[in-house]
Structure formats: structure tokens, C-alpha cells
């Protein structure tokens, strides 16, 4: 199993849900809405997992590792799908990608 890691890749970034988003989980699946667009979208199980783990304390690589254990999926495919998903949410200002974990600037 090949893991791709690097300081500057998306996989090494800490994910944090943006303050301008709201979400609710129904039957294990997330509905998310972000300002200013205001469009409501539903996430599938994998998307919901990534979204809920995006608390600023986990890198994308950490999250994918957990997903592969939980759902018994191939890491490379999971990483590709996750990066596409995260990139889209970041583009819409719903996710923030950080070099350091949330709260680390206070230490």
C-alpha cells in the first residue's frame, strides 16, 4: 500500500469546517449549507465521515487512514476521491486547510 505524504500536499493539511457553514446530520448523513452561497447539499457516507472529522485536529491523511480502516477500502482510491471532495469544499469556502492544527498558534 503506497501512502503519499509531503509537507506541501493537501494530504498533510489539517481540515477545519468553516465558520460560515452550518450542518445537521440525519440518519448518519450530513446536510451542509455554506454562506454566502446558501445552497444546501447532502453528503454521502464517506463525505460525512470526512466532514465530521474536519475539526482542525486531523490532517486529511489521518482522516483517510481512519476511513480505510472503517470501510476497508483501498488507500490510493480513497485518497484520490477525498482530495477531490476536499478541494471542492475548499473552493466553496466551506472547508479551511491549515498547515498546523487548530489552536496551535496559542501554544
Amino acid at each position: 500500500m503506497i501512502k503519499i505524504k509531503g509537507k506541501d500536499t493537501m494530504l498533510s493539511k489539517y481540515l477545519l469546517r468553516s465558520d460560515s457553514t452550518a450542518y445537521r446530520t440525519i440518519n448518519g448523513l450530513a446536510l451542509i449549507v455554506g454562506a454566502p452561497e446558501g445552497k444546501l447539499r447532502s453528503l454521502n457516507e464517506a463525505g460525512t465521515f470526512i466532514w465530521e472529522q474536519a475539526d482542525g485536529r486531523h490532517t486529511l491523511s489521518d482522516i483517510i487512514d481512519q476511513m480505510c480502516q472503517k470501510y476497508d477500502v483501498d488507500y490510493t482510491q480513497a485518497a484520490q476521491d477525498a482530495e477531490t471532495f476536499v478541494h471542492e469544499l475548499e473552493r466553496q469556502d466551506m472547508l479551511v486547510l491549515m498547515d498546523d492544527p487548530a489552536g496551535s498558534e496559542e501554544m
Binding site: 460560515s20 455554506g34 454562506a35 446558501g38 447532502s42
Partner: peptide
């Protein structure tokens, strides 16, 4: 929820208000 939300008349992009509507 999605069908209902799409039919709500609302014009603000304030995230707190969007959260309340959700």
C-alpha cells in the same frame, strides 16, 4: 429537508440565519 429548504423565501447570506432555517 432538501426539498423544503429550496422553497424557503430567504435573501440573506448570514450563516447564523441559514443555520436557523436549516
Amino acid at each position: 429537508v432538501m426539498d423544503l429548504y429550496r422553497c424557503v423565501l430567504f435573501f440573506s447570506d448570514d450563516s447564523q440565519l441559514l443555520s436557523k432555517i436549516l
